[in-house]
Design a binder for these strands. Structure first.
Length: 868
RNA sequence: GCCCGCCUGGCGGAAUGGUAGACGCAGCGGACUUAAAAUCCGCAAUCUGCAAGGAUGUGCCGGUUCGAGUCCGGCGGCGGGCACCA
């Protein structure tokens, strides 16, 4: 199937989506179907549906189509269920790509961004989403980021904003801070220079103050996916352990000891070394004394700041020559610098027990350090137990461990901590993996952080009446470094406290800050304060939030922090921003490569099918062979993208929506296929034709369905029940399948009386409406001409329970768990009668083969199992 | 490397521990047509058998159960995240 024939076969009715879709979109607009007040009436059942807002890259992609279709189904369904539904849309508009565009094409980030927004808004409007566009904003609007600055100042007053030093990726050639994605194999993406770690003084939000609450409150999020909660829980990373000090045998630069954190104080007797991070003061001291140590520290520094890179790097170390004393035995151990010890976690120093930690073991084997097992697996012989290349990390019994011998791991930990405490060498502590949130970015296209640096008065907040701190329009991207810092005048400002010349903060916010409270701003998007209390109290929390699984940790955790911080500063009453969360899978497509290995767009490729079923492909209009590659996430670099704009223009929004919902469960990755879209298109035409063809034979609207139409009516009401259940559980692909079945059933019921048929067709339109809203309106308007009602404003249909009860059921009959027959029995048949019927089956007799029956199992409505 | 998922026909998938493969896509056969498209009817997990039927089958290995796609343990493959991409 290639193109949709526009005008063939005049005799067959054809649904003209090109005319119908804009017409129904206009009808919804005119009646303001999707508008809600900032403060809903007290009796209203509010429901806030939100999809993660898009980054305005220029065009919508299939991931957006999927995300917003899913949200729209929920919004339309909940509206029909009588809720007052808020469903807004906006733009996550700050970020790196706008600056890249400015550098590459000389377009100003604002101009580029707003042009992209204008284009994407039109594309989204063509999807027929039930959005309330009056609430739209972009995070780069000064009205938005100005309110964000107010929030930051409130957070600052509440002690939630701090300045600390932290490490960044530094490109020494470009003189810029690099994002992790801009570091490729340890080098800057533009300059190719080896990246260094550099320490900068930066702004932080004190998310760690909420760590215990962020963890505990996960338990109350009963409409969040378990895996997301688990990932957040692991990220926050509460662990119980001990902090303890190892005394240096001789002081180093005034340091008398090295403090480590461990979750395994029970393995202290198995220690073989102590290791510190390359950023640790001990490492600095070693580097100052020994050029080889300095080289090693420099090597670690060139690894960048990404944890993934650090942990995957080959484990390397350097023996500083310093030595520490064991707190229990007084024995001495070497102090190493190790590239796998993270300065940000614990104290930046560990003690190594190779027998019971895999990384320590790898390290010890590499450098020939001792490996002493101190936890004995159950049933192992202490005389012969040895650790090979696999550390033993399970529970067991302490041995080789002095006063800990004989204890299990948990008891041994407690005993070791007690001993450390009584010696004054350490104490039991709770440690968190979660770090404070560094929000400083040395970039132009972000929300300016509203502080002023004065040499006399220190850091001063920008006074409220000087907000928003606007980005300057005239910026120069040709010089290296932060354009705000380079700007000739922008940063020069009088100190608000003493009036002397001072400097504006030139760091801007991490864009995650922008997206951490937009859900609240939507409730009163034009307010002259960050949020109006009445609006957020009425609408929050978001009842259903929908977005990609890639945001499972950072964005969602930051938003949860923000709502807590906004509560503490009096802006919100809720702690949790999102009561319900649904995470969708990615949209994927086959990828294609030409003979020379270049990536090809799907529309450049022509396919053919061989007799044996193998597909092959050539470049369109020629015979250059094409390699059909893997199905993988759509990406520009692999050119395996499909432009939703083109699909909607060709097939219509309903087709695109229907296909994207039908293909697979929404939380799984889906594959976009052209043939699947064509199938969805055929179904839209089929529904239209069914209604069109039936119209002459239908009785007037409101006719009571006839008793003799019972079979079709049962199908109708079963469809209402099953589609409703599927929509409630996000099983949209199942809802689609039920509607296909129902359409098949209607067509099969050719002889059904008119009233039953009318009911069936009306329900088909109404049940499909959340998924293909335009066609539903079109069909409804044909079935109810002159009625003037919109499906978008109608209540959801209710199934008649009397039509749902079955009269008989089919039971599977198994012998020894293997299916041998099926029997049809009346509902409520007695168990003895059922067994008799089952055993009467010829096939069942053959399987029993005269053996004595040991047991009969009957699961009503399901199965009979005969055990012989 | 660490954390978290996923894996069912040619393909996407369905299936409260109870008839595996609903529904769709692709395919095949037929009707209609001068022909094609569109549409309609039918077939279809694999192997075996004329058929009735039988055997096998939900990534792999093992376990629990009358019964496992589903629960448990181990392994493999693929994907998401790892704090400056959004």
């Amino acid at each position: 199937m290639n193109d949709i024939p526009a005008s063939q076969d005049k005799a067959a009715p054809r649904y003209d989506f090109r005319a119908a879709e804009p017409r129904w979109q206009a009808a919804w607009d005119e009646r303001a179907c999707f508008a809600v007040p900032d403060v809903p009436p007290a009796e209203a059942k509010k429901y806030y549906v939100l999809e993660m807002f898009p980054y305005p890259s220029g065009k919508i992609h299939m991931g957006h189509v999927r995300n917003y279709t899913l949200g729209d189904v929920v919004a339309r369904y909940k509206r029909a269920r009588g809720h007052l539904v808020m469903h807004p849309m906006g733009w996550d508009a700050f970020g790196l790509p706008a600056e890249n565009a400015a550098r590459e094409r000389g377009t100003h980030p604002a101009k580029w961004t707003y042009a992209n927004i204008a284009n994407m808004r039109e594309e989204l409007k063509r999807m027929g989403l039930s959005l309330e566009w009056a609430r739209e904003f972009a995070t780069c609007d000064p009205e938005y980021y100005g309110q964000q600055q107010k929030l930051l100042l409130d957070f600052w007053k509440a002690g939630l904003v701090e300045r600390k030093e932290s490490w960044v990726n530094w490109d020494p050639v470009d003189g810029t801070v690099l994002a992790n994605e801009q570091v490729i194999d340890g080098r800057g993406w533009r300059s190719g220079a080896l990246v260094e770690k550099k320490k900068l003084s930066q702004w932080f939000l004190a998310i760690t103050k909420f760590a215990p609450d962020l963890l505990e409150a996960l338990g109350g999020l009963d409409r969040w996916p378990e895996r997301v909660k688990l990932m957040q829980s692991n990220w926050i990373g509460r662990s119980e352990g001990a902090r303890l000090k190892f005394a240096l045998t001789a002081p180093v630069d005034g340091m008398a000891d090295v403090e480590v954190f461990t979750t395994r104080p029970d393995t202290l007797f198995g220690m073989s070394f102590l290791a510190v991070a390359a950023e640790h003061p001990i490492a600095a001291a070693a580097a100052a004394r020994d050029s080889k140590a300095a080289d090693f520290v420099a090597e670690c520094r060139s690894m960048g700041t990404s944890e993934a890179v650090i942990e995957q790097a080959e484990k390397k170390g350097f023996d500083t020559g310093f030595r520490v004393k064991h707190p229990f035995t007084g024995q001495e151990y070497p102090v190493w610098i190790a590239n796998f010890v993270l300065m940000e976690y614990g104290t930046g120093a560990i003690f190594g027990c190779p027998a019971h930690d895999q990384r320590d073991l790898d390290f010890a084997r590499k450098y020939g350090l001792s490996v002493t097992p101190v936890v004995l697996p159950k049933g192992a012989d202490p005389a012969t137990f040895a650790v090979g290349n696999e550390a033993f990390t399970d529970d067991g019994t302490a041995f080789n461990s002095g006063f800990l011998d004989g204890l299990d791991v948990a008891a041994s930990k407690r005993r070791a901590i007690a001993e450390l405490e009584s010696l004054g060498a350490g104490q039991g502590v709770v440690n968190w993996r979660l770090r404070d949130w560094g929000v400083s970015r040395q970039r132009y296209w972000g929300c300016p952080i509203p502080f002023i640096h004065c040499d006399d008065c220190g850091v001063q907040p920008v006074p409220d009446d000087q907000l928003p701190v606007r980005l300057p329009d005239d910026v120069d991207f040709s010089k290296p470094g932060n354009p705000l810092d380079n700007h000739p005048t922008w940063k020069h400002v009088a100190c608000p406290n003493c009036g002397k010349p001072a400097r504006r903060e030139t760091d801007t916010c991490d864009t995650f800050v922008d997206s951490s409270w937009y859900f609240a701003r939507f409730c009163s998007p034009r307010a002259a304060v960050p949020v109006t209390k009445a609006a957020v109290d009425a609408w929050l929390p978001v009842d259903q939030y929908i977005g990609g699984i890639e945001h499972a940790i950072l964005h969602l955790l930051y938003s949860r922090f923000f709502s807590r911080a906004m509560k503490e500063t009096g802006h919100l009453s809720v702690e949790e921003p999102f009561a319900g969360l649904f995470t969708q899978g990615m949209v994927q497509h086959e990828s294609y490569k030409g003979a020379d290995g270049r990536w090809l767009y799907p529309e450049e490729v022509e396919f053919s099918l061989a007799a044996d079923g193998t597909r092959s492909a050539v470049v369109k209009g020629g015979n250059e062979p094409v390699t059909i590659g893997r199905v993988e996430a759509m990406s520009k670099s692999k050119r395996n993208t499909v432009d939703p704009g083109a699909i909607i223009a060709k097939y219509g929004a309903d087709t695109a929506r229907w296909f994207i919902l039908s293909d697979n469960p929404p939380d799984r990755d889906m594959e976009w296929t052209e043939s699947g879209v064509a199938g969805a298109y055929r179904f839209t035409q089929r529904v239209f034709r069914m209604v069109e063809n039936a119209l002459p034979s239908l009785p007037p609207a409101g006719t009571t369905p006839e008793a003799e139409g019972r079979a079709l009516r049962r199908a109708t009401h079963r469809c209402i029940a099953t589609v409703t259940e599927a929509l409630e559980t996000f099983a949209f692909n199942v809802a689609v399948a039920r509607l296909y079945e129902f359409a098949n059933a209607i067509e099969a019921a050719k002889d059904a009386p008119g009233g039953a048929k009318r009911e069936a067709l009306e329900m088909l339109a109404r049940l499909a409406a959340p998924m293909m809203p335009h066609l539903a309106e079109e069909a409804w308007s044909m079935l109810r001409p002159g009625d003037g009602s919109l499906v978008a404003q109608m209540a959801w249909p209710e199934a008649d329970p009397a039509l749902l009860v079955a009269e008989s059921v089919t039971l599977a009959v198994q012998v020894l768990g293997k299916l041998r027959a099926t029997i049809e029995v009346p509902v409520g048949a007695g168990e003895e009668a059922i067994f008799a019927a089952a055993e009467a089956e010829e096939n069942v007799q053959r399987a029993i083969a005269g053996k004595p029956i040991r047991k009969r199992i009957h699961v009503p409505g399901r199965v009979v199992n005969i055990v012989v």
